[in-house]
Design a protein around this nucleic acid. Structure first.
Length: 255
DNA sequence: GCCCAGGGTGTTT
DNA sequence: AAACACCATGGG
């Protein structure tokens, strides 16, 4: 991984708090931690326990890509297109909020929304703001969130905050549930359907078998993997999904 | 001004 | 089960 290939991970639609600066460095945050990744400090930052976990450094992605290469020729192509792509270990609450806001929205705008959310209700930590905790959002009015541009998703975000603050949604409990049951608990929230639930599971709880299926993935599956289902990709289906999503978005001429 | 964006919900065929 | 309208907002 270097500054140029970091985009495969930080700009592939799984997170919304990183930006690349003109000098090629990356500035961003995760949960309550911020970082500025430069050519000089990248290696050292990735040795820090928090960031090593965030970037899933302990996992052997080379082996997983080889496994995928044997599974399907197009998957081999997609994985080879972004060999430094990794599934981040994001804060589950932040991931759930991000993807509640993602529905019927574009990535640019999602980034702006998340940024304004942090600026308005997160804790200031030096040069950046933390992502606001569920308790901070739970005491807001729906109008407060609409004022940030959340639109009709404001009520969904507020409901998720109140459920979580009241303990009705417990991410640590979701970790130990079978995937179907964890998905079921998440979709009980208003405005959370199968796609947003799978995003929270994959990006927030690192459930690598979760397979978020948005409009891009529906097209990609129909054209590139006709007849295939998420389970056909195995226990790392979510990683396969990310290779395919990223590859598809960068090859719109295929569709 | 129009179209679309990492969807979900409720209603109608 | 599949098709549809509706939900707000702003970037391209």
């Amino acid at each position: 991984m270097n500054l140029d290939t970091l985009g495969q991970t930080l700009d592939c639609g799984q997170c919304f708090r990183w930006e690349r600066l003109p000098d090629g460095s990356w500035r961003g945050a995760a949960g309550a931690c911020g970082a500025h990744l430069t050519k000089e400090n990248l290696k050292r930052v990735l040795e820090d326990p928090f960031w090593a976990d965030y970037f899933d450094m302990a996992r052997d992605y080379d082996a997983i890509r080889e496994h995928f290469a044997a599974l399907h020729p197009v998957l081999k192509e997609a994985a080879g297109y972004a060999p430094d792509l990794r599934i981040l270990n994001q804060n589950p609450w932040e991931a759930l909020c991000s993807f509640i806001l993602s529905q019927c929205n574009n990535i640019k705008r999602i980034k702006g929304l998340v940024s304004r959310l942090c600026g308005a209700y997160g804790e200031p930590c030096g040069a950046f703001h933390s992502f606001p905790g569920p308790e901070s959002l739970a005491r807001l009015d729906e109008q407060d969130l609409r004022a940030l541009g959340c639109g009709y998703r404001a009520g969904y975000l507020l409901a998720a905050a109140r459920h979580t603050a009241e303990g009705k949604l417990d991410f640590d409990r979701l970790r130990s549930l079978p995937l179907d049951e964890a998905r079921q608990k998440l979709t009980e929230l208003p405005g959370v359907g199968p796609k947003v639930a799978d995003c929270a599971l994959l990006y927030g709880l690192h459930r690598l078998e979760a397979f978020p299926t948005d409009v891009w993935m529906k097209r990609a599956m129909k054209v590139l993997f006709p007849g295939w289902k998420p389970k056909d990709f195995g226990k790392y289906a979510g990683i396969a999904q990310q290779y395919i999503f990223h590859y598809s978005r960068n090859h719109p001429e295929l569709f």
